[in-house]
Computed example of a mutant assay.
Amino acid sequence: MTVFAAGAVCWRVVDGKVKVLVIHRTAHRDVSLPKGKVDPGETLPQTAVREVVEETGLAVTLGVPLGMTNYTMPNGREKVVHYWAAEVTDAAVLASSFLPNGEVAALEWLPIRKALGALTYERDAEIVERFRMLVDEGVTRTFAVIALRHAKAVPPYQFDGPDASRHLTERGRGEAKSIVPALASFGPSRIISSTAKRCRQTVEPLSKTLHLDVKTTDAISQDAFESGDDGIREVVGKRIRKRITTVLCSHGPVLPEIVREVALATGTASRVSASRAGDLPVAGFSVLHLSVDRPGSGIIAIETHVPQ
């Protein structure tokens, strides 16, 4: 049975140079990247954030996905580890409560070249090499537009009233709660929702968890989209100009257009493949990673997550 795990390439700028974090593990006597196994009920992004905190004391949010490694453990089981880049703020460093322990003996911030030489395993070095590509391209610091489809709602044929008043089912309410940890892993600081009740209900648990107000707008509603009166381009354009991670909660027919507008606004070459990220199941979301410093350089990476 395959073991799944997740971790991060934690990085920060020190004296104008990018440095990455390696950990010296106590029992294994090796140098590696912070990571750990998925706990029951966890999503991979949630695991990555938790493991970084547990092993280093550093609170992070996730940036660009860096792919995965797989290898066979001594017991013969396959292990698959997913990684993200994660910028570490000065505040997080100051707030870290790390002390040497039975799992991690020490933390070390190293320039990328030195980190590559220090890591014990080639598979870890390959992940750091992928991160170095971002540095070389000048797109290390990122923000995201998160396109979220509302959770399961009462079907139209079972609802007597305006479509915008349809509410979530019991399953939908469960989905809205279950996706909060994964969404929170990317550190959104803004939540924007269609005015439809099913969308507002979907982001309510996230709003409460992150203590963020929800801005509602008809501009990304299904009614406005179908009547041709939407304001998707304006909403997306503003989010990209603000350069902060934002959740946009909308509807199945609208989300491909939201993703397409992100691709257009950022000069993404393959807009057709990007728009597929808007084809989401209920309570599914796609994270579109964009450069803070070079927002016109296109979508750097897209990842899609669905409820478990």
Rank of each mutant, 00 (worst) to 15 (best):
A5N: 04
V9P: 00
V13S: 08
D15W: 00
K19F: 00
I23Y: 03
T26H: 14
A27H: 14
H28Q: 10
R29N: 05
V31Q: 08
S32Y: 12
L33S: 07
G41S: 04
L44E: 05
Q46K: 00
L58R: 06
V60W: 12
T61S: 09
M68F: 15
T69K: 04
N70W: 15
N70S: 15
N70D: 15
Y71A: 06
E78R: 14
V81C: 14
V81R: 05
A86W: 13
D90F: 12
D90M: 09
V93G: 01
S96F: 11
G102H: 11
E103Y: 15
E103G: 02
V104N: 09
A105E: 15
L110H: 01
P111G: 02
I112R: 05
I112Q: 02
I112H: 02
G117V: 01
T120V: 06
F131I: 01
T140Q: 02
A144N: 07
V145N: 08
V145H: 15
A147R: 00
R149N: 06
A151K: 03
Q158Y: 09
G172M: 06
G172S: 07
E175M: 01
A176R: 02
K177N: 07
S178G: 08
P181L: 03
A182F: 03
A182V: 05
A182L: 06
S189V: 04
I191S: 00
T195K: 11
A196Y: 13
P205L: 05
D213A: 06
T216G: 10
A224G: 06
E234K: 06
V235G: 11
G237R: 11
I244P: 10
I244D: 13
T245P: 03
V247W: 09
L248Y: 07
L248C: 07
E257Y: 13
E257V: 04
V259Q: 02
T266A: 11
G267S: 13
S273I: 10
S275F: 03
A277D: 08
A277F: 13
V282E: 14
F285E: 00
L290S: 04
S291Y: 14
V292W: 13
P295W: 13
I299S: 12
E303K: 04
T304C: 08
P307E: 04
